[in-house]
Write a protein that binds this DNA or RNA. Sequence first.
DNA 1: CAGAAACGGGG
DNA 2: GTGTACGTTTCTG
Length: 594
Amino acid sequence: MQENVVILDIDYVTYEEKPVIRLFSKKGDENIILIDDTFEPYLYVVSDDVEECISEIEDNIDVVCVEKVIKKDFQIESEFIKVTFKHPQELAKNRDALRDLESVIQIREFDIPFYRRYLMDRDVIPMTEVTAVGEELETFMDLDSTKQDIKIIKLTERLERKKEYPQNFRILSFDLEVRNPHGMPDSAEDEIIMIGVASNFGVNQVISTKTNSEDRDDFVNQVSTEKEMIEEFVKIIKDNNVDIIVGYNSDNFDFPYLKDRAKILDVDLDIGMDESDVKFIRRGYSNAASFKGLIHVDLYLVMRRYMTLDRYTLERVYYELFGEEKIDVPGDRIWEFWDNEGEELDTLFDYSLDDVVSTLKIAEQTLPLNLELTRIIGQPLFDVSRMATGQQAEWFLVKQAYFDGEVVPNKQGSNFADRASAEDNEGGYVREPEKGLHENLVQFDFRSLYPSIIISKNISPDVMTLGKVEDEDDYNISPEHGIKFKKSPQGFIPSVIDKILQERFRIKRQMKASDDPQERIALDVQQQAIKRLANTMYGIYGFPRFRWYSFECAKAITSWGRQYIKSSIKKAEEYGFYAIYADTDGFYAKYKKE
DNA sequence: CAGAAACGGGG
DNA sequence: GTGTACGTTTCTG
């Protein structure tokens, strides 16, 4: 059978000791789970005696396949040994043993999560539409199409991607209010008093055990118990086939709280596509709340990247985006507003709805960009929405490297000694502003200064030399430190930036040519996403825990940057201007004469 | 002053 | 889940 579906999410399960990829997808209102058991985990081994190494691996390690392959390593074609395992956990278990074998110099690409490897190798891009060809199964492990509202397709062919991107996802925002007489609420004792929901499909309400005054807008959905509140919330999500659920700090407050209360009240929080519960995924020191086939985006994390503020409260973020104040109820008095009823209770209902409507508005403002980033990076929206920009750039590069036949560099050690030894790079040139109120200023700035320098000077570790060279004319040599970059061939990272900037110009041209306003907006978001990614690439060199970390490259970029801005200021001075303030890639200047 | 611990968001 | 935050402010000795 054949179906056109939109890929939302991915995971893998173990069936008969083999890993099986599951792609959570939708076709309109229909939930479709694609199953693929044809992908196996692998890594690469570097050895100076390939034949000897292959037999040593075969003798000592339980592997599916060991083979010699030709891949590029910093653009140089090299022999690698590709070692394929039966299961990702086998790979993890044997990683150290493999590294310790005598004939093994180095192992590579051993720390790429299985589902990410699948997305890259099979060129499957989340949030795009694909044609799936396969056979329909009635059940697969705990998936049961006769009991659950799902269709299961076991893939028999590679997925084929459609050109057009789906734009209309069903988005629902939610927010809890909790009775908290002792300061911050404790889920063991303090009941949920309101669950606000807002959506782009017409459902906007506050579920509560109380209701607001009769003369007010009737947006309260009154139920009799806290348990029914949660059940009603679950029902709304299921009945409306939500694609993306958003909250504000919902990873660390709303979902953990909801889960605790649901457990106490014996309610199933089974809102996953396969009716599974919320799962908390450890992410460093905090958690991320995750569902199967229902994408949860915590906007707090998104907004911290999206704009630069000193605080990221919902109130502040909303004000910065829309210039409007939100209804304010002091957190420590919410329980009083609830207990006092009357006017204060009405205010609390308004506050609850306002919170969730604001959250939805922020989602509608920021999700299009994140959807585009998801498609460019090629990793799930759930992950991309939680990644630091440097991580986004890195995963994008990992995917590009795969297409170029490159084996990606390993990460440096992440222990304290390595971090402490990381030197501080001198940043951009700053001229402190001249005090006073200035008039008739001119402004100058470079467009994408650092990405431009990376391309024009070909700054990339694979073409870098620190030692002596035969003919200096073949190299770009950085000011201050004399770091040399071969002029050709083009380095890996410059080539990637070059490619995406050309793609950006192509989109901008297409945008200008289009007279469909909807299409123009969509294209504008695409080019913005690319611009953000290009501007992040400099950071790839500056942080020791990134795969392409190169202190020399980072130093070279900023030193050329300082040279350019200083020489521009000097040039301006020759024409009778003088700079009253400069920072990194631009300056403000006054004309000397009146 | 250096290094450790806390903090953010949420109610 | 083949990856385990993170940059800044405040506290402590």
